[in-house]
Design a protein around this nucleic acid. Structure first.
Lengths: 239, 239
DNA sequence: CGCCTCATTGACCTAGTTCAATTTGGGTGG
DNA sequence: CCACCCAAATTGAACTAGGTCAATGAGGCG
C-alpha cells in the first residue's frame, strides 16, 4: 500500500529494512475522498499527515475574484501535507482532483518514528524541502517562461515524478485534469490553455487528450521548457 | 548580533533563555559580501547555513535567455539557506543585493543543537516551511494577481516582515533594489514595473523612491493586494 | 565637468484575455 | 441501440495588459 512512498524515499536516501518496517507499522487509517472534495482545508489545525496512495490531488489557494491558483500537483506516493507537521495548520487547501485514497500518519507517530531514529526527521524534512524546491521552479515557470514553455515544463516535471512511482507508460502518463485546472496551475485562462495545447500538438511535441499526456519528443520538449530535473532531487544520495 | 533572529524565533515559538544561550554559542564566523556577490551558488555542496545579519539578499534562478527570476527577498534575521541543511546542496543561487554580512551556523552545530534539544529541529524546520509558504503566496501573486496588486502585495509582505525585526519606520522601510530587480521578482519588465510604481503613487497608495518604500494607505494597499498575513506565520504559538 | 547607471516616458507591437458560438464525446434513460 | 444531455473542448473575433524599442532625464561620483 505504501510501496510508492518507499520508492520515493529510496531514490533519495538509504533506507533500512528495519526502518521500512517501523514506518509500515505506523501508518494509520485509510480514507477515501470523492473528486472535488477538500482533503485538508486552509487554517484547520491538523494532527496527522496524509499520504496519497491513489488519485490526483493538488494544493491551491482561492482568490477573492473567484479564481484559483494551483501550486502543486500530488501523485500517489506523495505526502500532500507533511508540512502540517511542523506548521500545525495550513495556509492553503488540498483538494482531490479525482477520487483519492489517503492513509493517515498521525503526528504523534511521526514523533515516535523520529525518536526511534533521527534519520526519519531528515527524510520527512527532506520531502517538505522538495516541495519547496518545486514551488521555486514553478515561480520561474510563472514569472519567466513563455506560455508554451510553461506547459512543456509541467509535462516534463510530471513525467519524471510519475516514473519514480511506476505510473508512466513510456513517455505517456495519466493526467486527469480538465483544461480549466491546467490553466489554474499555469496562470492562464482555459481558452489560452487550449491554444497552447494545440500548439504543442501541432509542433509534434506532446498531446494532451482523454486525460492523458503523450510526449512525442521528450528531448525537444525539455529543450523548449529549459527543463533541468535537478530541482526534483531524484538522484540517489547518502542519507 | 543575532538579536533579529531571536526575534523571529520568539514571535513564533516559546524559546528558553537556555536555548537562546546554546544557539548564541554555536554561531560561527562572520563573512562579508559585496553587492552583487553570490552568497551561495547553485549546486554547490554546503556544510553550513548563513544567517543574514545585515543587508538585503535574494534567492534567484537564471534562465537560459539571460533573464532571472527572484523567488524571495531576505532581510536581516533570516537564514538564507537553512534548507541546505536537509538538502545538502541548493537548486538556486542566493545573492547579495546590497553589501551583506552573514554569520555561519555549521551543519554539525545544528546537529548538536538538535541533539541537545529536539525543539531546535522544530524551530529550524519551521523556518524552512515559512519560506515554502512564502513561495506559495508568490505563486498566487505571479499566477493570479494583476500587475498593480502584485507590487502592492510585495510591499505589504515586506512591511510585515521588516516590522518583526525592527527595521520599519512607521509604514516606511528601506528596500534597496533597482526597478530591474523589482521586476525580476514580480515577473515584469523594468519598464512596466516603473509604470506600476507610478500608478501606485498616482493612486496615493505607496511610493518607492530613493530605495525606500513609503506606504500612504496601508488598509487600501492590503485591500488591493488581497493581503492576508497568515501565510507569514507571525502569530505567537506554542512550540 | 562629464560620465554612467538607473528612472522615466512615448509609440508601437504581441501575448494573453474576454465574450460568444460551435463542436465533441461520454453517460444516461427509454 | 438510439436519442438526448451536459460538461468540457475548440474556435473566432475583438480587446487589453504587458513587452519592446528607443529616446530623454536625473542623480551620484570621480
Amino acid at each position: 500500500m505504501i510501496e510508492k512512498l518507499i520508492e520515493t524515499i529510496k531514490v533519495r536516501h538509504h533506507f533500512s529494512a528495519e526502518n521500512e518496517g517501523l514506518l509500515r507499522d505506523r501508518m494509520g487509517e485509510t480514507v477515501d475522498f470523492a473528486a472535488g472534495d477538500l482533503i485538508v482545508s486552509e487554517g484547520r489545525r491538523i494532527t496527522y499527515s496524509s499520504l496519497l496512495i491513489d488519485g490526483l490531488a493538488c494544493r491551491s489557494k482561492d482568490t477573492r475574484q473567484g479564481s484559483r491558483q494551483i501550486m502543486e500537483f500530488h501523485i500517489p506516493g506523495d505526502f500532500v501535507d507533511l508540512h502540517s507537521y511542523p506548521l500545525e495548520s495550513l495556509d492553503h487547501d488540498i483538494s482531490a482532483i479525482t477520487p483519492c485514497r489517503i492513509v493517515k500518519l498521525h503526528h504523534a507517530d511521526i514523533d515516535e518514528l523520529i525518536e526511534r531514529d533521527i534519520r526519519f526527521a531528515r527524510i520527512f524534512w527532506f520531502f517538505t524541502m522538495v516541495d519547496a524546491s518545486v514551488h521555486r521552479e514553478w515561480l520561474v515557470n510563472l514569472g519567466a517562461r513563455s506560455g508554451i514553455a510553461r506547459v512543456a515544463h509541467l509535462f516534463c516535471e510530471l513525467l519524471y515524478r510519475v516514473r519514480v512511482v511506476g505510473l508512466a507508460e513510456g513517455t505517456g502518463f495519466a493526467f486527469p485534469v480538465s483544461q480549466v485546472e491546467l490553466g489554474e496551475a499555469l496562470g492562464f485562462t482555459p481558452v489560452h490553455t487550449n491554444r497552447l495545447l494545440r500548439e504543442l500538438r501541432d509542433r509534434d511535441l506532446a498531446t494532451f487528450r482523454a486525460k492523458t499526456v503523450h510526449i512525442h519528443d521528450l528531448a525537444a520538449l525539455e529543450e523548449l521548457a529549459e527543463f533541468e530535473p535537478g530541482y526534483l532531487y531524484l538522484g540517489r544520495r547518502a542519507g
